[in-house]
Every structure is written in C-alpha cells, then in structure tokens.
Design a protein around this nucleic acid. Structure first.
Length: 182
DNA sequence: ATGACGATGCACT
DNA sequence: GTGCATCGTCATG
C-alpha cells in the first residue's frame, strides 16, 4: 500500500487523514488537512510560479514549506494530476517523540503539541531546510493510514479568498484538531 | 466560551 | 508599503 500523489488535492487531503508523518522519528498521525488547488484564489500557486512557491510547481510528493506571519512555518504535501496543487498539514495526534515535542513547544499538554499548522512545524522542527525534500525519504517518513477514519468537512481556516470552499478535512471527533468543525 | 490584538519577517505589487 | 494558509495572551460575556 502506498500513496498516489497524483490525486486531486481535494481527494488526497482526505487520503492523508490517518497517515503517519514524522521528521527524524518525531511526529504522529495526521488528523487535519486542507486542500489547495492551482486555480484556487486562496492558494499560493494562484498567481503562478514565483520564488516562494517554486516547489508547488515541481514533482508531487515533496514538501512545500513556507514562513507565515514572520514567525511560524507551515508544511504542505505537493500533489495533484497537474502542477500547482498541495495539501496543508494542519494537525497531528502526537505518537512518536513526545518528550522532544514537549521540549520544543515548551508545553506539557499533549493535545496542544501539534494542533495547528505552525504548532506541528515547531514540534517536528520543520523550517525552510526541509522545503522541497521528498516526504517518503529521510528525514521524513510518511506512511499510509491502515484504516479510513471518519471524516469531517468544513471551510478552510485563516483565508479570505474562496473562503466558502469546504476543503478542510479532519478526523471527526479527534481531540487533536486545531479547531472543531461546524 | 468567544473575540481582539500584537509579535515579526519577507514575498510580492 | 501591504498582507499574510498563525499562535499565545489578555479581555469580556
């Protein structure tokens, strides 16, 4: 069993739920994602290729990392049948390297370690060094879900354009989400 | 419980 | 100069 990175971002975002993502052996199970498409006003790919989004226009299966608000990072999985698609990883259920993640985050509460795109990058120590790296090779490890979790759907968070598209997906009922679903 | 705000850096117009 | 795919803290109901 393996990933099909050429699925549409909308489909792949759901396939990623339940998968395990680690960096240097630290990470957990993906419980929340968002899809971004090439022809999507909310996507970094929308304006076309630039220095920042170059990885989105490269081969699928690689990590697109960007800095946001001057102090946080977010990771995406590049995917899709054509260039410019990606899935934002928004939350994990921490399972590996809990002690390391607690130290990096300066927190005890397991539920808060990776419950947001910026939080999980801090917990897994993801920054621009990982931008463009293949997600199925070290330091990353990305293994498919063994079973399909119950999926919740809702509008994406923190965007102003195309805000009505229901392209946020989550493991229904998980206590490790960045926010609850409507 | 929900909402406002400031921190902080850089890509893009 | 503007605007962020955010987070933590503080305030108010």
């Amino acid at each position: 069993m393996s990933f099909d990175f050429t699925q549409t971002p909308e489909a792949f975002a759901q396939a990623l739920l339940g998968a395990t993502l680690t960096v240097e052996g630290v990470g957990g199970v993906i419980v929340e994602t968002e899809a971004y498409d090439r022809d999507d006003p909310a996507s970094h790919a929308f304006p076309g290729p630039t220095a920042r989004n170059a990885v989105m226009f490269g081969p699928p299966g690689h990590a697109y990392v960007y800095r946001i608000y001057g102090m946080h990072y977010c990771v995406n999985v590049v995917c899709g049948p054509r260039l410019g698609g990606a899935v934002l990883i928004r939350a994990l259920r921490p399972t590996e390297g809990l002690a390391v993640m607690r130290r990096r985050r300066g927190l005890e509460d397991e539920r808060a370690l990776c419950s947001g795109p910026g939080k999980l990058c801090q917990a897994l120590a993801v920054d621009m060094v990982q931008n463009g790296l293949l997600l199925t090779a070290p330091p990353f490890r990305l293994t498919p879900a063994t079973e399909t979790p119950p999926i919740a759907v809702g509008p994406r968070i923190g965007i102003t354009k195309a805000a009505e598209r229901p392209w946020r997906f989550g493991w229904a009922g998980s206590p490790y989400l960045s926010r609850r679903f409507p």
